[in-house]
Amino acid sequence: MVMMDANASARLKRRAATVAHRVGLFLAMLFICLPGIWIVLSSLRPTVEILAKPPVWIPQQVSLDAYIAMFSGVGKGGIPVLDYFRIR
């Protein structure tokens, strides 16, 4: 067994604190970002992948279907996007 002097153990403690700080910060940021990231990822997936069981975590295929549908007008599964920006 190696005897550790006070300086070495203080150094070790400080290093551990740094690591803990980094990990904590990373987890906190992940928690904050995750919902947003998930929404954006979902918007870029085909519906099949969203509904898949077991879930597909990393998007296998990128699809802009949702965006195309959104702009394709009422009746084709879209919404009247442009109407919202019209004044009259």
């Binding site: 940021m29 904050i32 509904l51």
Partner: peptide, 27 residues
């Protein structure tokens, strides 16, 4: 990044979490 959630309107937060907590396909 920390202020990121403040940029979301509560309605959007509602939809977002409704989607995430969906019992079938939620995150």
């Amino acid at each position: 990044i920390m202020m990121f959630p403040m940029m979301f309107s509560p309605i959007l937060v509602g939809f977002q979490f409704k989607f995430m907590f969906n019992d079938n396909i939620g995150l």
